[in-house]
Design a protein around this nucleic acid. Structure first.
Lengths: 142, 142
DNA sequence: TTGTTATTTATAATAATTCTAAACTTTATG
DNA sequence: CATAAAGTTTAGAATTATTATAAATAACAA
């Protein structure tokens, strides 16, 4: 768990100025025990509720994208009209519960890394991710 | 390769009335040798170019969603502001080329199905899909 | 300090998608 | 085959997520 000065150092180190807004967003995102899956709106809501402060939506967008670019956040692929982000930036997989729209992280202990037997020639593999969609049995698949 | 009357039967069989518009969309989507990855706009463009006809965008949306619900199309998960669909509804995997934004299908011969060692209790697995992102080496990961 | 550069902000612009309600088709039934 | 009921199509409006803009502000280096 990082302290605020450590966030500042880390930001500076990545070439991002440690502004009030960015430090607050760090608090909300990274001062937690578990992975956080969120949309920009979830995050904006958390900021105003937890810190009782308002950061302009544009800044939240800017910051999330800056953090993603620096590798502090990951964008998640699910079929959706919104973008989801993940504070877990390690290589990992997901269960997606179609009943509740909940996304659950898991690692290679739960889902064994698939073997890639051939690759596209001239290209390097950047990431390998598995998405397992689940639902209760009676639920029609979407 | 299906004929138009066969499309009509198939639609009727799934409880969808075989309207002119739906039959045309079937032609564009399913009278082809290879998998088609498309956005709604790609499809609308194909309709107007190939058939030289205009189907209302709303209808294209309606139809694609109806076809998806009936299992004739699959929605694909990539981080994007658009929804992508796939005429390949079998269980399969994807390479995503970050340089060109191209999506390439592959099956278990190329990417071995990952083993799911634990599942969420009370849930049934609806699908298991692997997404492999690739890029040329010098390319910064997105 | 002071000047330069990065960042924040409110707001406008854009783009994908969904909604609406009227017109039109398809289908089932008498 | 006439007709009514139900399903579809349509243009356009509405909604929603996201990006762009440009002026005000804050951080940094000298």
């Amino acid at each position: 768990m990082l302290k605020n000065t450590e966030f500042a150092d880390k930001l500076r180190f990545s070439g991002l100025r440690p502004t009030k807004q960015r430090l607050k967003i760090c608090e909300v995102l990274f001062k937690r025990d578990h992975t956080f899956h969120f949309t920009i709106n979830d995050l904006a809501k958390n900021i105003s509720e937890q810190l009782n402060e308002k950061i302009s939506l544009a800044t939240v967008y800017n910051t999330v994208h800056a953090f993603k670019k620096k590798g502090y956040l990951k964008e998640i692929s699910i079929n959706s009209d919104k973008s989801y982000f993940d504070t877990n930036t390690t290589s990992h997989h997901h269960f997606f519960d179609e009943d509740t729209n909940e996304l659950i992280d898991c690692d290679d202990e739960v889902i064994e890394a698939p073997k890639i037997k051939k690759n596209i020639s001239g290209k390097k593999i950047k990431s390998v991710e598995v998405l397992v969609k689940v639902a209760t049995d009676y639920h029609n698949q979407k």
